[in-house]
C-alpha cells in the first residue's frame, strides 16, 4: 500500500469536511478498498474512515414504513436487525461474502462502489430504494449508472439507504466459485402496484432492471410467466466463469427461482 493519513470523524459533518482534503477517499468497511490499496490500484492521500460515525449506523423504520439503514451499517447488522421488517433484504445481507467480511463490510460501501457483481445494488434497485447522501436523496433508478459508476459526486457520502418494503421479495443467486460474489443473482420484489426485478453479476453495464420480466410478472406472478423470456447475452460479462450467453440464461433461471421461492 502507498501510505495515507487516516481521518476518523465521528459525525457526517466532520466526514464531509475531511473529504475536502486533497485526494481524500472515503472508506467504510474497507473489505473491497483495502485489497485494492494492497494491490496499489488506488493512492489516496487521506482515507476518511466512516466506521466511527454513529449517526450512520443502524436499522429503523421511517414514517412511510420504509426500512432505513445507515450507510455505515455492517451486513451482519442488517442481517440481524432488518429480519423483522424486510426478511428478503436481511437474507441478502446474510449471504454476502463470509461472516468476517459481513462484520466489517457496510451497505454504504457496497452501494457507493457499485461492483457489477455486488449483492446490495440488486437489493436497492429491486426494492426501488432511495439513496441518501450528505446533501441529497437519489432514487435507485437514477443512482446506478453502470459498472462502478454511480450518481455520486466527488466527495459525496452515502449516509443512508431507504427501502420501501414490498409485500414479498426474494434474492436468488448462484455463486462465482472463486470470488463467491454472485455469478448472477436476481432480486425480485412484489409490490401492490407491480413487480421489480433487478439483476446483478450479469451485465457489462452493472446492475439493471429486467423490464420484460417485471411486466410479465406484474400481470402474472408465477415462475411460468418468465419461463419464455430471454435476455441478450451479447452485452453481458463473459469471463473464465461463464459466457454472456450463459449469464443471460442464468438471469432467467434466477428470476424464475426467486419467483418460485416467493410462491
Amino acid at each position: 500500500m502507498y501510505n495515507f493519513d487516516v481521518e476518523r470523524p465521528s459525525t457526517i459533518q466532520d466526514a464531509v469536511k475531511a473529504m475536502g482534503r486533497e485526494e481524500a477517499q472515503p472508506m467504510s468497511g474497507g473489505q473491497t478498498l483495502i485489497p485494492t490499496l494492497k494491490a496499489r490500484l488506488a493512492a489516496p492521500s487521506v482515507l476518511v474512515s466512516l466506521t466511527g460515525i454513529d449517526e450512520m449506523k443502524g436499522v429503523c423504520l421511517d414514517d412511510e414504513g420504509r426500512v432505513c439503514i445507515g450507510g455505515a451499517t455492517t451486513h451482519a447488522t442488517v442481517a440481524r436487525e432488518a429480519e423483522a421488517h424486510y426478511p428478503a433484504l436481511a437474507s441478502l445481507a446474510a449471504r454476502i461474502g463470509d461472516p468476517a467480511v459481513r462484520n466489517r463490510g457496510t451497505i454504504g460501501g457496497s452501494i457507493a462502489n457499485n461492483d457489477p457483481s455486488a449483492c446490495y445494488p440488486a437489493g436497492a434497485l429491486g426494492s426501488g430504494a432511495t439513496i441518501v447522501t450528505n446533501n441529497r436523496e437519489i432514487a435507485a433508478d437514477d443512482y446506478f449508472q453502470g459498472m462502478f459508476e454511480t450518481a455520486l459526486e466527488e466527495g459525496e457520502i452515502v449516509t443512508e439507504v431507504k427501502f420501501p418494503v414490498p409485500t414479498a421479495a426474494h434474492y436468488e443467486k448462484i455463486l462465482q466459485p472463486a470470488s463467491r460474489f454472485p455469478l448472477v443473482a436476481a432480486f425480485v420484489a412484489k409490490f401492490s402496484d407491480g413487480v421489480r426485478v433487478a439483476i446483478t453479476g450479469a451485465s457489462n453495464d452493472g446492475v439493471f432492471r429486467w423490464a420484460e420480466a417485471e411486466q410479465a410478472l406484474s400481470s402474472n406472478f408465477s415462475p411460468d410467466a418468465v419461463a419464455g423470456l430471454s435476455l441478450d447475452g451479447s452485452n453481458m460479462i463473459s469471463d473464465l466463469h461463464g459466457t454472456g450467453a450463459y449469464r443471460a440464461h442464468l438471469c432467467g433461471v434466477m428470476t424464475k427461482r426467486a419467483v418460485a421461492a416467493i410462491g
Binding site: I174, P177, H241, G242, T243, Y246, H249
Partner: peptide, 8 residues
C-alpha cells in the same frame, strides 16, 4: 467441470 461447461 464448471457450471458453465456443464450447461454448455
Amino acid at each position: 467441470v464448471s457450471p458453465a461447461r456443464v450447461w454448455a
